[in-house]
Simulated scan of single mutants.
Amino acid sequence: MTQGSAAVRLVDVRDEPLSLDEVVSAVGDPRAGGIVPFVGVVRDHDDGKGVTGLDYSAHPSALAQLRAVVEQVAGRPGVVGVAAVHRVGRLDIGDLAVVCAVSAEHRGEAFEACRELIDTLKSTVPIWKHQGFADGTEEWVGLP
């Protein structure tokens, strides 16, 4: 079983389109009995309002904090590989905002670890969303 840093396969914050294939490939391993991906996509609505697009901004520490989250998840029992990539900049409806994947010896471990990965990323990594709405209003999401 791979533990900790050896299981960290890909961590990045990018201003270019993300690839599910890249992230899933990064965690592939013959020891893994399951790979669970998560893909966050820009949707056309939020809280009953039409979304026209959004911008993601990241604090300079975001990459280091994302790496810390990935390393935490990589240390879980049975986890073989972990990858997470978050997009910044202008995104349109349908664009991929975040792609994560976890491979583990068993599917249950992979599901649990991937859920921890995305939930912890969303609550601790300083990446903020600025949404524009169809009615001309806008809001920031995730600012402290």
Rank of each mutant, 00 (worst) to 15 (best):
P144C: 11
R31S: 14
G78E: 14
V141L: 15
D21T: 08
P126M: 01
E109L: 07
D55E: 15
I93M: 05
P17K: 13
A64G: 13
D29Q: 00
V125L: 00
V24D: 00
D12F: 06
V82M: 12
A113I: 00
D44A: 13
H86D: 01
M1K: 09
R87I: 07
G108P: 09
A32W: 08
S57V: 15
E116T: 09
A6V: 10
I35H: 05
D92N: 13
V27G: 04
G94I: 11
T120S: 08
D21H: 08
G108D: 15
V125F: 01
D29P: 02
V125P: 09
V141Q: 13
C100E: 09
R107S: 00
H86P: 04
A84P: 14
E112H: 13
S61H: 11
K122E: 01
R107W: 05
L10T: 03
A104M: 01
L91D: 12
G4F: 03
A84L: 15
A26W: 01
G4V: 06
D44R: 08
L96F: 15
H130D: 14
E109F: 02
D47P: 13
V125W: 02
S123G: 12
D119C: 03
G89Q: 10
V88Y: 10
V141I: 15
L143D: 13
Q72S: 15
E22M: 08
I127R: 04
V24N: 00
A6T: 12
F111C: 07
T124S: 06
G75F: 07
